[in-house]
């Protein structure tokens, strides 16, 4: 990966993000359309959820990151793009742009798995991961636990059977009449009620699977609110804490079982929910007895971003895993 300079494109769902990463880990520029002031800087309205948003933002972002990184197209050594999983229309915008760049600049193309990139994000501006590792991807759309022998060598241990962890946070916040996104609001409320150790009793899965399930918890919260309506801030703090305790235990429990089984060197966490400080603390507590190092990216690399795509792209290209220009995007796919 030494001396590589890869441009990475992420457009699998809501966010359009482009980044330039040097040597597979140093982020020279990383810009995301919804976060930068595209409206004011370039004028025009960017619709919330649409392939068109990606289409409109992408060229602007590419120009912007080249400028920020103080490089030109000629300096690049590779192009990386999210190829799966995601919304097919949204993915295709990124993939088409990446193919166009790779073709015209005569550069190798790397198609990246979005979830794998979320885990790779811990290496951005940081040290390489020590393997074997456990990988936990927790976001609005995904909740998955992997055993990892190295990048590109995975075994899925469990995934959600219904809602993703981030979705559970958002929907419970909605049930409680709170704002969006729900994760940070619930975390803040729960923080004010550290004395609450209560949890919801959620029906266990009937088999011995390592899969996650959060939809029962959502129903339990909605029934509790129906039974005892929330009246004060104290009520809300109490319920938020009780919910967060339950969801963190659901995640921790599965991580604990996997730690016992594999005694990995690292526990790698990625995805938007990895921003949750209480989750970080809970996982740290689980990892310590096994002398497993907890690795979590800084918040800017937890949510969807182009840097994780560029970083993993540099790695894949260095391993000779180069995608053909006829490769195409896939809405759902597994990489284990």
């Amino acid at each position: 990966m030494l001396n590589s300079l890869v441009l990475g494109i992420e457009s699998s769902c809501d966010e359009t993000s482009v980044a330039i990463v040097k040597d597979g880990y140093r982020v020279l520029a990383n810009e995301t359309a919804s976060q930068m002031a595209l409206h004011s800087r370039y004028g025009g309205v960017v619709p919330e959820v649409a392939s068109r948003q990606h289409l409109e933002s992408l060229p602007l972002l590419v120009t912007e990151v080249l400028k920020q990184a103080q490089v030109t197209f000629d300096d690049l050594t590779g192009i990386a793009v999210t190829g799966m999983p995601g919304l097919i229309g949204a993915l295709l915008v990124g993939v088409s742009a990446a193919k166009g760049l790779a073709f015209t600049l005569h550069l190798p193309l790397a198609m990246i798995h979005h979830i794998e990139a979320h885990l790779y994000a811990v290496q951005l501006d940081s040290d390489p991961v020590l393997f074997p590792a456990l990988g936990l991807a927790v976001s609005g759309g995904h909740t998955e636990l992997y055993h990892m022998e190295g990048w590109g060598q995975y075994r899925l241990l469990g995934s959600t059977r219904d809602d993703a962890a981030g979705e559970a946070f958002d929907k419970v916040a909605k049930l409680m009449g709170l704002g969006y996104p729900g994760g940070p609001i619930i975390e803040k409320l729960a923080k004010n009620a550290p004395q609450v150790t209560e949890k919801f009793s959620v029906s266990r899965m009937k088999d011995k699977s390592q899969d996650f399930s959060f939809s029962g918890l959502k129903t339990a919260v909605s029934l509790e609110i129906k039974k005892t309506p929330l009246q004060s801030e104290k009520d809300r703090e109490h319920l938020a804490a009780k919910f967060q305790n339950t969801i963190l235990e659901e995640i921790s429990k599965r991580v604990r079982i996997a730690l016992e089984e594999f005694q990995p060197k690292s526990l790698v966490v990625g995805g938007g929910v990895a921003c949750n400080q209480a989750l970080r603390e809970a996982l740290k507590k689980e990892a310590e007895p096994f002398k497993t190092v907890l690795r979590v990216p800084p918040p800017k690399y937890c949510s969807d971003n182009g840097a994780m795509i560029a970083g993993l792209g540099a790695y894949q290209i260095s391993q000779g895993r180069i995608s053909s220009l006829s490769a195409t995007a896939a809405s759902r796919s597994t990489f284990y």
Partner: peptide, 13 residues
């Protein structure tokens, strides 16, 4: 296979 909520992902095939 597994069928999960498409709330965030918007569409599953």
């Amino acid at each position: 296979g597994m069928v999960t909520s498409p709330t965030f992902t918007l569409q599953h095939i």
